[in-house]
């Protein structure tokens, strides 16, 4: 099938969802949608990024996101290099900026960066010449995760506007939550956050979401439920007294799920902690859980993002060509 060759995305980097327009988001989702089918074919290789170099620079460990970006780049024909902190010069005391400058000197076309500090990817993007995709920075944003979540919902429901989505759990430490809040509210979805107050940022309501401490109340009428992982590695001290207490009040089980719409989707960005935020039975419920589908959408969304940033829109390509002709002759 023929994928659209370009989308209206005139940005150098993809650092955050906040600030993207509904048109830009729809453009990326449409392009991603076209790649879903392609990814199900036996022959998956495309050539739109042939000759381009993509470096995945991960300062924080990751399995699914890194693999997903690697596959996305390779399927579009790019040369993909993976760099992780383990075994790199970061361990020898090199600063993030120096690492970025070093890689920059090798002329990559796109850097896909994950970092454990909020804002670090943005800082890095200011120091390099290539496009930069934020693959998750601290507790700030994880744009491609929000896009793949939106694609999953849109394909299941046929639309986004007018739906109600609940985001449950450790919102405080979650970059997935922030990106999703910005994306879903931009697309006209009613967003609710459900968590104990200790796991919610103090001014989360200013982002335009409804705040619920009671999961059953919060889930009423929801079309989709996004469960978040309890991020114990980002916590200073105790935010909840115990896992069993957390699961009792904020873990997704059959009883609490009954408050949502009967066909509400169960989502999780992974990695899951079974029995902490989600009951194993529900995570594996093929009728309700779209967790594996989210992973599938991830590759398509990342292909779309890479293409949107690296392949100039036709009118821009034509302009460059005209300029070249003027400067250097036909």
């Amino acid at each position: 099938m023929n994928a659209p060759t370009s989308v209206p995305f005139a940005r150098r980097h993809l650092l955050r969802i906040e600030g993207l327009s509904a048109a830009e988001i729809n453009g990326l989702l449409d392009l991603a949608d076209s790649y879903v089918e392609l990814n199900r074919q036996v022959e998956k290789k495309q050539s739109v990024l042939r000759g381009r170099t993509q470096i995945n620079l991960f300062f924080e460990s990751s399995t699914r996101t890194r693999t997903s970006f690697e596959l996305a780049g390779k399927r579009l024909g790019a040369d993909v290099i993976n760099m992780s902190v383990e075994g790199s010069s970061i361990k020898k005391g090199e600063t993030m900026i120096d690492t970025a400058m070093t890689l920059n000197a090798m002329h990559p076309d796109v850097l896909v960066v994950r970092h454990h500090d909020s804002g670090a990817v943005e800082l890095l993007s200011q120091k390099v010449d290539s496009a930069v995709i934020n693959a998750g920075d601290g507790s700030h944003e994880h744009p491609t995760q929000a896009l793949l979540d939106a694609l999953t919902i849109r394909r299941r429901r046929g639309k986004l506007a007018g739906l109600t989505v609940a985001i449950c759990g450790d919102v405080l430490h979650s970059r997935v939550a922030r990106s999703n809040i910005h994306l879903l509210t931009t697309m006209g979805i009613e967003v609710r956050v459900i968590a104990p107050p200790t796991l919610l940022p103090r001014f989360i309501d200013r982002l335009g979401v409804g705040v619920f401490y009671d999961m059953k109340k919060g889930l009423q009428g929801c079309d989709a439920i996004m469960m978040l992982r309890l991020q114990t590695e980002r916590m200073h001290g105790a935010f909840v007294p115990s896992i069993r207490e957390y699961f009792r009040f904020y873990g997704l089980d059959k009883e609490k799920l009954a408050s949502a719409k009967p066909d509400a989707l169960i989502m999780h960005p992974g990695p899951m902690n079974r029995g902490v935020e989600i009951d194993t039975v529900l995570a594996d419920d093929i009728d309700r859980s779209v967790i594996r589908e989210q992973v599938e959408m991830g590759v398509a969304v990342r292909m779309a993002c890479l293409q949107a940033l690296l392949v100039p829109a036709p009118n821009r390509a034509a302009k460059v060509e005209r300029l070249r002709t003027v400067l250097f002759g036909p």
Partner: peptide, 13 residues
């Protein structure tokens, strides 16, 4: 400051 900016930036306030 623990305020709206901190909430948006994903930083502890």
């Amino acid at each position: 400051n623990e305020g709206e900016v901190a909430t948006r930036l994903g930083l502890a306030g």
